[in-house]
Design a protein around this nucleic acid. Structure first.
Length: 808
DNA sequence: ACTAAGATAGTTTTT
DNA sequence: CTATCTTAGT
């Protein structure tokens, strides 16, 4: 939920009846803009397709917007256009995004276009935030009170675990995590306990899946709570059961816009259909924007089919393709286009650019011996770019899986190269923040049992499992909240004196804070709560390395509350907006997963780890077969198209997976890159690491100090200098000693990287005895192009590239 | 109730 | 290998 919007009344009279001349200031400005005689300036600078997409306001429209074709621009301009041409009031436009970030960005950009803040777009937001808004208005129809709480994954897990135990099931054999995942999947598909498939219902807890799901929903209802899935499902049910209410929304939402349509799941699709489908003859002004080639969330329920089916779903739909790319060089687009062409079941787009700069560099493919060398070499390339005056902010390393980040972090820490990890554990997911939030929640919502259970013994008050269980049972027996139960229990002699006193203290504290809620400014109260509860003190007394950071985070939490009117408003915000802006001031290389890179762009992009098994990921292949492979390929496509100017792909021959070294084969995606746009980058084996140590500086460089790399740096700080350099240089000598015929020389030449079925024969023969640096001696038992199958004396049968072995 | 050793699992992530 | 969670022991 976007802050400060909570007080917009349902069906404000001014917009339910557009004839009334009451307008928001936004509308006024928009109306003024409309009087400009020529094409308004917001339309200038659009290409013909973009302009078509903006001006086709009526009827269903699908905009297939390739990477870097100005998708967001079209969406925002379209909204500005609708407003400026007085087709609708701001509050009559429903605009849905997937992430809060996207919603925020859209608001800002519309604001720029229309001039000034966009106070009047109450229905621009994520599926979930709009879902909450709907649900708060009609809570009673979903069996909730309008002040329901939204549970995060932590709460959900705790709750499910309780339910599993209550059923007398072994919570190890039936992990709460797994069941939470199942519920999530069901909800993504719009399934309720009654409608899930029989097989699914039986698959969990000895056939009790359905009962458990139902029990879970019941429990949510008594807690007056929703999980994320409910924010979509409840409105769907509500609309189905109350056609009159749905009709009101039909009237209200004159224009509906959906961003990233390829990412919609079935529930979101149902939700949209309900809102968008109109009686025969009535116009459906629905505009969906997306790119089937960038659909990378199939594994969490997204249905690419939704976008592929659009024309069937909405008859008479117009489809506009945006293929003119403003982001990347022709080489990058050529490489990406060729790669993605290997997918079937696409709507088909070919990106092009008018940019033709002979100086543009081809996509570079590099090989490295192992992940350590990969990180070292990338680090060097980054330093080279930096020397040429490129900003670190314009560079990114995009990995398939987060464990790959480690090596880069380690390397950058030793180099003293600023980096930023994007994605990782988020602010509001940190332990101390969740604890603090639980205190606040319980203060605002005395019925929030999950919050109570979280902090009733934090800091330690001597209220162990036994006491908590008593409170819990008492509450359940009487069907009252646990806090109330605790209050009653104090007056009985159920509890022993010690826990009784402790419980009394806690309950009294919360009662006092609840009273203060009205009279005390919420930031002040928040501070008071953390102090009086002893929570701050707990961390002050903690001697561990993280403690200072945690205290800092708590301060940050209080600071971030300042922007809100009340504690309630803040809690609402946090439950939906789990992310927090990173400081973008610092010049730093970004490290992130390919998934979190979607929507971003960088001048220079590094794509390490292009090896079979990692990318495409083995599990995607095993679990989803061809569909899995295609999604992996789309991920690769997303990765490539993030780059504006330079793109460096890396693969290594040896990677440590689950602790042991595995020899790896280059990714099949490398074979799918066109030779005209790709070249083999020279891989210098160089002496990185002999520089000056940055560990000695008084104030360490400003990396985000919560990242693992940073933590390691801190732990190693005292002893690292000598040891690190020692081993590292030793390594290098080893590497160099490998000589000319080493890893890179013949690995890749002329022909692109490693062909899985190359005609080019290797210099080796079956039966040859060879030596491999990691696996030792062995005999060649098979040759396929430059890939050798070798039976190693010690390591067993492996497949390796011929460049990595030499005659024994 | 806290620590230490043992077990376990290990893509991708938003809301 | 290693981060995280669980269990056993003090």
């Amino acid at each position: 939920m976007i802050q400060g919007e909570d007080n917009i009344p349902f069906f404000d009279e001014d917009d339910a009846e557009p004839a009334k001349p009451v307008r928001s200031s936004l509308a006024q400005r928009a109306m003024a803009a409309r009087r400009v005689p020529d094409a308004p300036d917001y339309l200038s600078g659009l290409n013909p397709e973009q302009r078509d997409a903006v001006e086709t306001t009526e009827g269903p429209l699908l905009v297939l917007a390739g990477a870097g074709t100005g998708k967001t621009r079209v969406l925002t301009t379209r909204i500005a256009h609708i407003l400026a041409s007085a087709r609708a009031y701001p509050s009559q436009i429903l605009a849905v995004t997937f992430t809060n970030k996207a919603a925020r960005e859209m608001k800002e950009r519309i604001g720029v276009l229309v001039g000034g803040a966009v106070e009047g777009m109450p229905w621009l937001g994520t599926f979930h935030s709009i879902g909450v808004k709907l649900l708060r208005r009609h809570a009673e129809l979903a069996g909730l009170r309008s002040d329901f709480t939204i549970l995060d994954t932590d709460d959900v897990l705790r709750l499910i675990k309780q339910l599993i135990q209550a059923e007398g099931l072994d919570d190890k054999r039936w992990p709460a995590r797994q069941f939470a995942g199942m519920i999530d999947n069901w909800k993504n598909k719009g399934l309720t306990p009654k409608t899930i498939a029989e097989g699914d219902a039986r698959a969990f807890a000895n056939g009790k899946g359905r009962e458990l799901y139902q029990a879970y929903q019941d429990r949510l209802k008594t807690l007056n709570a929703c999980d994320f899935g409910d924010l979509l499902l409840h409105p769907i049910e509500l609309f189905k059961k109350n056609p009159d209410i749905l009709k009101e929304y039909h009237k209200r939402f004159r224009y509906i816009l959906v961003d990233e349509y390829q990412d919609t799941n079935t529930a979101q699709y149902m939700w949209l259909r309900l809102l968008a489908q109109r009686p025969e003859g009535e116009a459906v002004n629905l505009c969906c924007v997306g790119d089937d080639d960038q659909s990378i969330y199939g594994w969490r329920g997204a249905e690419v089919d939704n976008i592929l089916r659009f024309e069937k779903d909405f008859r008479g739909a117009k489809v506009i393709r945006l293929e003119r790319n403003y982001r990347s060089t022709a080489h990058i687009l050529g490489a990406a286009g060729n790669l993605i062409a290997h997918n079937e079941g696409r709507l088909g787009k070919t990106l092009f650019t008018e940019r033709a700069d002979p100086d543009d560099e081809k996509v570079q493919v590099h090989a490295a011996w192992d992940s350590e060398e990969e990180a070292r070499a990338v680090g060097e390339e980054i330093e080279q770019y930096q020397k040429r005056g490129e900003a670190l902010n314009e560079m990114a390393i995009l990995v398939r899986a987060s464990f790959q980040m480690r090596e880069f972090e380690d390397r950058f820490v030793t180099l003293g190269l600023n980096y930023r990890v994007i994605g990782g554990p988020r602010f509001y997911e940190r332990l101390e923040i969740r604890d603090a939030m639980a205190f606040f929640r319980l203060t605002c919502q005395p019925a929030d049992d999950l919050a109570l259970e979280r902090i009733i013994n934090t800091p330690k008050r001597g209220l162990g499992d036994a006491s908590v269980r008593k409170v819990h049972d008492y509450a359940r027996a009487r069907d009252i909240p646990m806090l109330a139960a605790a209050r009653e229990l104090i007056d009985t002699d159920e509890l022993k004196p010690k826990p009784r006193k402790a419980l009394f203290d806690v309950v009294t504290q919360f009662e006092r804070w609840q009273e203060l809620l009205e009279s005390t400014p919420h930031t002040e109260l928040a501070e008071q709560i953390l102090d009086e509860s002893g929570y701050t003190e707990m961390w002050q007394n903690d001697r561990s390395a993280e403690a200072p950071g945690r205290l800092e985070n708590l301060k940050e939490l209080i600071r971030s509350m300042e922007g809100f009117e009340s504690m309630r408003g803040f809690l609402e915000h946090v439950s939906l907006v789990m992310d927090v802006d990173q400081n973008e001031e610092m010049d730093a290389v970004s490290i992130m997963t390919l998934h979190s890179a979607k929507g971003l762009e960088f001048k220079t992009v590094f794509l390490p780890g292009w090896e079979e098994g990692l990318f495409p990921h083995q599990r995607a292949l095993d679990e989803s077969g061809r569909a899995g492979l295609e999604e992996e390929r789309r991920l690769a496509y997303v990765g490539l198209t993030r780059a504006k100017r330079n793109c460096h792909i890396w693969f290594v021959s040896n990677r440590r997976i689950h602790g042991l070294w595995q020899s790896t084969m280059p990714s099949r995606f490398l074979d799918e890159l066109p030779e005209d746009h790709v070249e083999v980058g020279e891989t210098e084996v160089s002496y990185g690491g002999y520089g000056q140590s940055r560990f000695d500086r008084a104030e360490p460089f400003s990396n985000t100090y919560a990242t693992p790399g940073w933590k390691r740096a801190q732990t190693n700080r005292t002893s690292a200098t000598r040891d690190n350099w020692g081993t590292r240089s030793g390594h290098q000598v080893e590497r160099i000693g490998y000589g000319e015929s080493g890893p890179r020389g013949q690995t890749i030449e002329g022909e692109l990287v490693a062909r899985s079925t190359g005609e080019q024969s290797s210099a080796f023969h079956v039966g040859d005895r060879v030596f491999h640096m990691k696996f030792g001696n062995g005999n060649i038992s098979g040759i396929e192009g430059n890939k050798l199958t070798i039976d190693f004396d010690k390591a067993g049968r492996k497949r390796v590239l011929d460049g990595f072995v030499k005659p024994a």
